[in-house]
Design a protein around this nucleic acid. Structure first.
Lengths: 217, 217
DNA sequence: TGTACATCAGTGAACGCGCGTTCACTGATGTAC
DNA sequence: TGTACATCAGTGAACGCGCGTTCACTGATGTAC
């Protein structure tokens, strides 16, 4: 394990792999993703994955040591694709007019989760169960976001808009926790009459207030 | 499934069970909980559970149809034990001095998660994967809390402390989401220098502000 | 351009293990008189 | 209080299935000349 944290991918025997093999590896990862979305995590078997792409189970072992290894590779990919989110946090949130930036970030965050829900779910489960590799994957994704938000909080605190005895790291963590978890509630809230639009607006307002201290937008 | 949502427990063949059987069922549930905490969810096997209490795997089938059935029973138990949390939300949060109530609630919430982490984790996973029984279990636990918080937000909104164009349900959901998710980050935050005390204080302050509109405690 | 050879990629077929599951049974507990 | 019987609770032993895993192989692709 921990063998797929970087490019380029290598086969399990250590040699580098060509185009054809890369495509097969890709197909295996995509199939894993599909099965993870279609069924529950505990129903995804190694043989199902290879069946899905019409390959022999032996093929799987050319690229991954076991299912966890493939899940970890997916998790790391998902982390790598979070760069766009970080970029949306580069500009400062200071003036009330910066609210639009918060909205853009939150929209992107929700979309990111919608796209990667099944993988993120498993990554977080494994991380919370104590698996070191998945812990690292989760941290790699979250720390940059947390750092960026924490810095914003700090700046706004320095400007006197946020109470100085709040912990900036903890505040940033709270914001991220809220965003992350709420994406799981969306379906249920919708069913109970709180539509996606109301949720997004309220969420943006809350996040902007927590980070900047501006309550009246 | 869905057979263990209410007391008293019955055997899988339908008859009511006596004291001895009740104790065995209890032991099976406790063992499941222990294994869930000790290992990852996907490593918990039916035979492990019975091995843990020195019983035959056949015994398991007297009380549960399969592992999911036992997990669901545990989930429902955990829901039933959340009554204390609701009680902590009965008194109003309106005056700045009510902050202590928020702190008490948040402490209780954190403790509740610490005690039931392994079960709640699986419940949420299954719910998010679309399992109807676990969805129901999760809703049964969350809706009362959400309702109670939503009412508080409404009252404070009526008193003019909270912007009237926020959605009260969405705000309540945001608060709960934040609490729920942050419990998973605690270990990591501690490791990075943001101790439990700082986290709890910041969290309490944020929650109190979101619910009541009081920012200066 | 064509042929020979080397390396890369994929698999068929087999394996053994351990899991979930079943059922006829034995043993434990409760009850009637 | 003691005995006979009924019901409750637990299990030994067996089963078959499907999974993960392996390895010697075949086929596909690349390269040298």
């Amino acid at each position: 394990m921990a063998s797929h944290t970087n490019d380029p991918p290598v086969a399990t025997d250590g040699r580098e792999i060509g185009e054809r093999a890369k495509a097969t590896r890709r197909k295996l990862l995509d199939a894993t993703r599909v099965l993870l979305t279609r069924h529950g995590f505990s129903d995804v078997r190694l043989v199902d994955i290879t069946r899905e792409i019409g390959a022999s189970p032996a093929t799987f072992y050319q690229y991954f040591t076991d299912i966890d290894d493939a899940l970890l590779a997916l998790s790391n990919e998902v982390t790598e694709n979070s760069g766009a989110l970080i970029e949306l946090l580069e500009a400062p949130w200071a003036e009330p007019a910066d609210y639009e930036r918060a909205v853009a970030f939150i929209d992107a965050y929700i979309a990111y989760w919608a796209d990667n829900r099944a993988v993120l779910r498993v990554r977080n489960l494994k991380a919370e169960e104590g698996n070191a590799d998945f812990r690292r994957a989760r941290s790699a994704a979250q720390l940059p976001l947390m750092q960026a938000i924490s810095t914003k909080v700090e700046n706004n605190m320095a400007a006197g808009r946020i109470s100085a005895d709040l912990d900036t790291q903890a505040t940033a963590a709270a914001v991220l926790a809220m965003l992350e978890r709420l994406t799981a509630y969306r379906a249920e809230l919708s069913a109970r009459g709180t539509g996606g639009a109301a949720l997004e607006t309220t969420l943006s307002r809350i996040v902007f207030q927590l980070v900047t201290g501006h309550s009246n937008v």
